[in-house]
Design a protein around this nucleic acid. Sequence first.
DNA 1: ACCTGAACACCGTTCAAGT
DNA 2: ACCTGAACACCGTTCAAGT
Lengths: 178, 178
Amino acid sequence: MEDRMPTPDRTSLDAIVTAGRDLLEAGGPDAVTMQAVANRVGVRAPSLYKRVADRPSLLSLVADATALDLATRLERVEGIGALARGFRSFARERPEGFRLAFSGSGSVEVLARASAPVLGAAEDLVGAAEALPAARLLTAWLVGFVSMELAGAFQLGGSVEAAFEFGLDRLEAALSTR
Amino acid sequence: MEDRMPTPDRTSLDAIVTAGRDLLEAGGPDAVTMQAVANRVGVRAPSLYKRVADRPSLLSLVADATALDLATRLERVEGIGALARGFRSFARERPEGFRLAFSGSGSVEVLARASAPVLGAAEDLVGAAEALPAARLLTAWLVGFVSMELAGAFQLGGSVEAAFEFGLDRLEAALSTR
DNA sequence: ACCTGAACACCGTTCAAGT
DNA sequence: ACCTGAACACCGTTCAAGT
């Protein structure tokens, strides 16, 4: 009973992931350095390896956290229009996290959860038989549109806003037809 | 007339970009190291800085070269279906280059040229007035679908092939309607 | 049990010195 | 005019030694 207590934890996985997320949004992937993360959570870089396997898996955790945030936001919303606008506004608020989450870092399950609400809306539109390909049409359009917007494509003039509403309109129409 | 001739060039910008492209496809962006590129072209890393400003701008040149390859392939093809399938097959042949080109590295002009054929096909479908938003709908879907496919999303089962054809079908229908 | 300094291998980039 | 070795700052990761 006279053993010294182990020193109390000086950080946590949560704090590390949050620090990674903040650094990512502030400066892109290159800015999420093990040293910068360690600095933010008040610890030295080698200590991070107690909670995280390596840098790629830290980025993967950040990707999952972002996808989870997106999922919980979309779960609160109904209808394809509101889903699409919620998806787009999330990507504009967290562009780096969005890019990371949809670029193949991160687990597939979490990403699937983020697109579950779209699957639900698609089922309402076209019925269960075609729900999956319809959801893939919608999700692909959303991901592509937002990615291109973030990448600064859409340079030929015209209103990007109008193009988004045009796409939404036509897709709804295309999927409502029997 | 007795000055020594300057030593002949031992490499070229073209060779450097090609080496970057090959390394990229073989091992992803992390593999395109200044040292690895130099090695491939038979020179030491510092020499690369005679032709290229730095690593990011080398990656940008690789992105542009990829987008140009895509553009010339699509320019040989007509009709929205053939364009869509050509786009997708290119992305599957050069996944890393595709990702890089559509992630915001690379110049906007070259990317615009790669999507010009889609703009043409869109105009044939909906007329000049709506050609731009229609092209954006098509391109966004293509980019999103292919990105998700490369990222390994589409995990819920069902045929990805069928989902692609479903999307193509519905989009053509949506844009042919008056 | 967690934390640290020291160390290692590797990378991007600069620059003076060679031809 | 291009190329090189040497050097610098920085990074990810490991590990023995501390508490």
